[in-house]
Nucleic acid binder design. Structure first.
Length: 497
RNA sequence: CGGGGCGUAGCGCAGUCCGGUUAGCGCACCUGCUUUGGGAGCAGGGGGCCGCAGGUUCGAAUCCUGCCGCCCCGACCA
């Protein structure tokens, strides 16, 4: 009881940190801005990765791997791209150490300076398009649909576990197409894949939308995004898919011979999601008792806690239930660790977000039942032991569904339509109906005149940015919330991670 | 990179202002016994270069200088 974590309403970011640490997901490493992803956190990432990988392959993609290092000159080939990433690159200048002449360990050997510095990839467009140049000659080589699972480095000023770390894990898809239409459809398809993954597996509702020019990926003609709303009313960009036009094809001179025997530049996309999704997962579902993981991604879906009394009956009953659950494809663990008492285990498994707990004690067995507790609502119920597996198979599906519906309700409740700037400021800065002290304001749906100038002015005045122009937006005449100029549709603003 | 806070046992902290026995507490850990249906109790025990490096002093966790790291809030960003 004395081990409660920080409450969301008191200090939301400390609550988040407490969960990451106490649920054993990750630690700060000794390297500034980097994290150690611990086995539990990595197991969730593996589940996410496996599902995404399956979805990528079902849509025709294959995996490959490109180098960690990028020659400095490659990065500067595409003007917008280098401008976007130059400020956050780790640079390799030397390739050897030597003993310190003064006897203090090792120092960089000044004679081992690289002729051309290498950049640790912040993203791989440049090295990949330099390679695609050699792979693509004819329309018959297209489309090229490649994904890679990798780590990347972006030297950010301020980091937060999972949400923004100097090094992070992700996947980056890089595709090449013969036509503009096909590349555009690929970018949109992958946005749909991300949205489906977020909603079906993470139970995290997202808005599919288009980024404004200001928020666009460096080097893209169009960026598609999925945006989620966290419990503190701040938006999280959860995944992006870019239509790159012919920008990289031109920068790296990637042409193909079409059916009419003419040279054409290739059309491109790139798309990625990262370990940031874990931050989104945590902040979408977890509560003041700890982590909540949707069953489809939970490394352990069901934990059985024995209430110890002398005799083998409890272990036998647990075995029986475990076999039945495994027969239904459910991941179950028996916590027979004698070191801890049941009460401790209950609290611990709740902290770690295991969706379902089964308690089995002598009293239960006398009645031929087990106790089943669900993490999402904390409800407990008793079920005949022979029906437990079937009950739980339904229950995990229901929990998955409930988590999504709950998050969707929250999200929908926190989209505020405003039509003047005073209401806009109130929506973004006010505490609304939330108890959370650092409440971000949720999504604000408002008219915008379409200019970057207005977007930046609003950001300066309120710290809210345009998260996206929703894809399924209704056309609606109105006036820009700041300038009063005519606008044909609303866009979604929010303070963002 | 600016502002604020913090580095003392695995974790969380007290002690630092005002220098002085052997640096203390809770949790965790080890041993034993009793326990076990919501974070067990008792007894005994182990564990510290007080962030690092200099300096002042008879004497430094405590004072001074420099450095490093982390957290929070900004600016930047996935």
């Amino acid at each position: 009881m004395a081990k409660a974590i920080t409450q969301r309403k008191d200090n939301y970011s400390q609550w988040y940190l407490d969960i990451v640490k106490r649920a054993g997901l990750a630690d700060h490493s000794k390297v500034k801005g980097c994290m150690v992803i611990k086995p539990t956190g990595f197991a969730i990432w593996e589940n996410m990765r496996d599902e995404l990988d399956r979805m990528f392959k079902e849509t025709g993609h294959v995996n490959a791997y490109f180098p960690l290092f990028i020659p400095k000159s490659f990065l500067s080939r595409e003007a917008q791209h280098v401008e976007g990433f130059a400020k956050e690159c780790a640079v390799i200048t030397h390739h050897r150490l030597m003993n310190d002449p003064d006897g203090n360990g090792v120092v960089v050997d000044p004679d081992a300076k690289l002729e051309e510095e290498l950049i640790v990839r912040p993203t791989s467009e440049t090295i990949i398009w330099d390679t695609y140049k050699d792979w693509i000659n004819s329309y018959r080589d297209l489309p090229l649909l490649i994904n890679q699972w990798a780590n990347v480095v972006r030297w950010e000023m301020r980091t937060r576990l999972f949400l923004r770390t100097t090094e992070f894990l992700w996947q980056e898809g890089h595709t090449a197409h013969a036509t503009r239409e096909e590349a555009m459809e690929e970018a949109l398809q992958m946005q749909r894949v991300y949205a489906e993954f977020a909603e079906e597996y993470m139970a995290m509702p997202v808005v599919k939308g288009i980024k404004t020019a200001n928020e666009r990926f460096a080097g893209a003609d169009e960026t598609f995004t999925i945006e989620a709303l966290m419990q503190d009313g701040k938006a999280l960009q959860a995944g992006t898919s870019h239509f790159l036009g012919q920008n990289f094809a031109k920068a790296f001179d990637v042409k193909f011979l079409n059916k009419e025997n003419q040279q054409e530049y290739v059309w491109a996309t790139s798309w990625g999601v990262s370990t940031r999704l874990l931050g989104g997962l945590i902040m979408t579902h977890s509560d003041d008792d700890g982590l909540v993981i949707p069953p489809k991604l939970a490394p352990t879906q069901v934990v059985i806690v024995p209430i110890p009394k002398p005799g083998p009956e409890i272990g036998e009953a647990a075995d029986k239930v475990m076999k039945a659950l495994r027969g239904r494809g459910i991941r179950v663990k028996f916590d027979d660790d004698e070191k801890n008492r049941p009460g401790f285990k209950f609290a611990e498994h709740e902290m770690k977000g295991i969706p379902v707990r089964i308690g089995i004690g002598k009293r239960d067995l006398e009645k031929g039942q087990v106790e089943i507790a669900r993490r999402d609502t904390k409800e407990k119920t008793f079920v005949p032991i022979d029906e437990a597996a079937a009950y739980i198979e339904n229950l995990v599906a229901e929990i998955q569904n409930n988590l999504f519906e709950r998050a969707k309700q929250f999200r929908d409740d926190n989209i505020t339509k405003v039509d003047n700037f005073d209401d806009f400021k109130e929506a973004v800065s006010g505490s609304g109906n939330s108890e959370i002290e650092s409440w971000g304001g949720g999504f604000v749906s408002a008219h915008w005149d379409g200019t970057t100038e207005t977007e930046l002015k609003i950001k300066e005045l309120t710290k809210a940015t345009i998260r996206c122009i929703p894809l399924d937006n209704e056309k609606e005449e109105g006036q820009c919330v700041l300038t009063g100029k005519p606008s044909g549709q609303r866009v979604l603003f929010a303070k963002a991670y």
